[in-house]
């Protein structure tokens, strides 16, 4: 089933002023339910504007946005749309406001006008999912938590709405290595257990290559690449033009290719690179004593 569909979507900021800026330019994009999409693009390429269209935070100017069958231009379904698309902004911990963690997490479900029991159930579940055990954290002030805990509490506040689609904007920005690892593992878990469709915006190509099934790259408000990580990162020239970096595994593979160790452009993760290199090593070791052995092996494979 189709989760999101953008048709000829364009958006201009500060229209008819000296500061006019076209943020999105004729974007066509369809995302299926269950996909994990990595959205990449240099700063100012239109990523934020695009994701804010998905729950009606930015009004559609030109084109169409359809999410889970609802039009983002339809005011009547706006609330429903916001509960369908959970949005974790950059540094979400700066939006915590309640006296206790539990009450902050309950903010979304309360706005959904759910029954009290259901709100409690969701708050408990959300806190458990993000790894903040209810009994330990529910009554604490969100402002007293550590940096990583605050971030997870803020994510819980979005998860408690049990959105079908989850959008995360730079979820690991500013975290230390431990925090990063935890939050990335959490995003994976949310994809499996809570929100089937995930869109993650990130500048960290290594994370994107590791986690996304599909990558959409933006440049100056247009989609310039769309496909599997192997396809998108395979298009080196396009990426460079869009001002985007490669995952470190792909970069290292390129350097090795330059040095005469031929590696395919479809390598995007460290594991894939290590496996490919191990294979080459095994082949060369086999080839050195007797070249014919290698040939016979190849023949058998065909």
């Amino acid at each position: 089933m189709r989760a999101i569909e953008l048709k000829k979507l364009s958006y201009t900021y500060s229209k008819k002023t000296p500061f006019e800026k076209r943020a999105l330019d004729n974007v066509d994009l369809a995302i299926e339910e269950g996909e994990f999409v990595g959205l990449i693009g240099a700063t100012g390429s239109g990523k934020s504007t695009l994701i804010q269209h998905l729950n009606g935070l930015v009004k559609v100017q030109e084109g169409e946005v359809v999410v889970a069958g609802m039009s983002a231009s339809d005011k009547k379904s706006l609330k429903q749309l916001r509960f369908t698309v959970g949005m974790v902004f950059q540094y979400p911990e700066y939006q915590l406001f309640e006296e206790t963690v539990a009450r902050d997490v309950a903010f979304g479900p309360k706005n959904m006008k759910l029954e009290k029991d259901e709100i409690d159930r969701r708050v408990r579940r959300a806190l458990e999912v993000v790894g903040l055990p209810y009994d330990e954290f529910a009554e604490r002030s969100p402002f007293e938590l550590s940096g990583g805990e605050k971030r997870r509490a803020a994510i819980a506040g979005v998860i408690a709405m049990e959105p079908k689609i989850l959008v995360l904007d730079e979820p690991v920005a500013g975290l230390d290595p431990v925090g990063r690892r935890e939050v990335l593992a959490l995003v994976r878990k949310l994809h499996e257990e809570v929100s089937p469709t995930v869109i993650m915006v990130s500048h960290y190509m290594d994370d994107i290559a590791e986690m996304a099934d599909r990558i959409v790259a933006l440049k100056e408000g247009r989609v310039v690449a769309d496909g599997s990580p192997q396809e998108v990162f395979g298009e080196r020239e396009k990426l460079a033009q869009a001002g985007l970096a490669l995952p470190s595994a792909a970069r290292i593979a390129d350097k090795l290719t330059e040095r005469g160790i031929e590696l395919p452009r479809t390598i995007v993760t460290p594991a894939a690179l290590a496996d490919a290199l191990a294979e080459i090593k095994a082949k060369r070791a086999a080839n050195e004593p007797a070249a014919q052995d290698g040939e016979r092996e190849d023949g058998e494979n065909v």
């Binding site: 729950n55 935070l57 959970g86 939006q95 979304g108 979005v158 709405m161």
Partner: peptide, 13 residues
């Protein structure tokens, strides 16, 4: 504006 957007995203009006 960012905070408003974030709270709106959680259904605040």
């Amino acid at each position: 504006n960012k905070i408003i957007a974030a709270q709106k995203a959680r259904g605040a009006s």
